[in-house]
Amino acid sequence: MLFFGILSILLAVAFAKDTCYTDVGAACNSLPKPDRELMSNCNAKYGYTKKHHLVDLQSYANANIGISFEFLLMSSYFGNYEDQREGFKKLYRKFSDEMWEDAINTIKYITKRGGTMDFNQSSHFLKPTNVLELNELNSLAKALDRQKQLANEALRIHSTFTQINKEDDAALAHYIEEKFLEPQADRVRDLAGYTNDLKNLLTDDDPSVSIFLFDEYLQKSL
């Protein structure tokens, strides 16, 4: 009987630690002026707890925002009156919108899991580059590099939540797989195909015609 009594006390202490229920009880006991800090566990946080996990997600969201603006600049460049590459303009505007949507979705997921977004968190895996005044082939190469960088970072973040004996978080791992890994595989494959196809076309005697036809193909296929 004594054993069960001690076990009950231990279980009560174990379950009472770091819970919203315990915080609410402490806050109610401090009436009429409850301290909000006493309810620090009444939030949506669960699963991953390390600070660097949140930093990774914040950094990834900011990277998508930055790359979205890069693609927007590239789209504007090819859509000006001098170049008039409507296909390239459409392609890079599409990527810009997709990167922006990925950033918004990441921010929503951070807040859904009880975190906050830090727009000052730098993207450690990206280095600023000049994306203006690129020719058609160079722009495709730059776009491919950017998509690979995002894909590799998504894989790295995913691996931190699926390693044995570490803070596994199946929900976050599934989110990254569904929202990033699969779409990025398609983008990388498409851009790799575009880059090699255009490179092969430029071996013709009149590359301007090849670029024009390739731009027409992009405009109709997207």
Score class of each variant (00 low, 15 high):
residue 166 K to H: 08
residue 129 T to M: 13
residue 36 R to L: 01
residue 27 A to V: 01
residue 166 K to V: 13
residue 202 L to M: 14
residue 173 A to Q: 03
residue 212 F to S: 10
residue 120 N to D: 13
residue 169 D to C: 08
residue 157 I to M: 12
residue 194 Y to C: 06
residue 112 K to I: 01
residue 144 L to D: 06
residue 72 L to T: 12
residue 34 P to T: 05
residue 219 Q to W: 06
residue 165 N to V: 03
residue 50 K to H: 09
residue 78 F to Y: 13
residue 166 K to W: 05
residue 199 K to P: 03
residue 159 S to E: 12
residue 50 K to E: 13
residue 217 Y to A: 12
residue 11 L to R: 12
residue 181 L to M: 05
residue 6 I to P: 06
residue 126 L to G: 04
residue 133 E to M: 10
residue 62 N to W: 03
residue 27 A to E: 01
residue 37 E to P: 01
residue 113 R to C: 12
residue 47 G to L: 14
residue 159 S to R: 15
residue 72 L to R: 15
residue 193 G to D: 06
residue 31 L to C: 11
residue 180 F to M: 08
residue 171 A to E: 10
residue 173 A to T: 06
residue 182 E to P: 00
residue 206 D to H: 12
residue 111 T to S: 10
residue 18 D to T: 03
residue 6 I to F: 15
residue 35 D to C: 08
residue 216 E to Q: 11
residue 157 I to T: 13
residue 201 L to T: 02
residue 18 D to F: 04
residue 180 F to S: 07
residue 109 Y to A: 01
residue 44 A to K: 11
residue 148 K to W: 07
residue 55 V to C: 03
residue 17 K to V: 07
residue 125 F to H: 15
residue 116 T to Q: 13
residue 10 L to V: 14
residue 2 L to R: 11
residue 97 D to M: 02
residue 88 F to H: 09
residue 47 G to C: 10
residue 186 D to M: 00
residue 43 N to H: 15
residue 9 I to T: 15
residue 24 V to A: 00
residue 13 V to A: 14
residue 15 F to V: 14
residue 40 S to E: 01
residue 6 I to V: 14
residue 6 I to W: 14
residue 105 N to P: 08
residue 170 A to Q: 09
residue 207 P to C: 10
residue 169 D to T: 05
residue 207 P to D: 14
residue 105 N to E: 14
residue 182 E to V: 10
residue 152 N to I: 00
residue 55 V to G: 05
residue 107 I to Y: 08
residue 127 K to R: 10
residue 18 D to V: 03
residue 107 I to H: 12
residue 3 F to E: 09
residue 172 L to D: 07
residue 203 T to I: 08
residue 173 A to C: 04
residue 153 E to R: 08
residue 98 E to L: 04
residue 184 Q to L: 14
residue 153 E to Y: 02
residue 186 D to A: 04
residue 188 V to F: 04
residue 78 F to A: 07
residue 77 Y to S: 11
residue 110 I to L: 15
residue 183 P to M: 00
residue 18 D to Y: 07
residue 203 T to C: 00
residue 214 F to S: 04
residue 90 K to W: 03
residue 161 F to N: 01
residue 132 L to M: 13
residue 194 Y to K: 05
residue 167 E to S: 03
residue 98 E to I: 05
residue 12 A to R: 07
residue 150 L to I: 02
residue 216 E to V: 03
residue 218 L to V: 15
residue 76 S to L: 04
residue 63 A to C: 15
residue 178 E to T: 15
residue 127 K to L: 06
residue 137 L to Q: 15
residue 156 R to T: 11
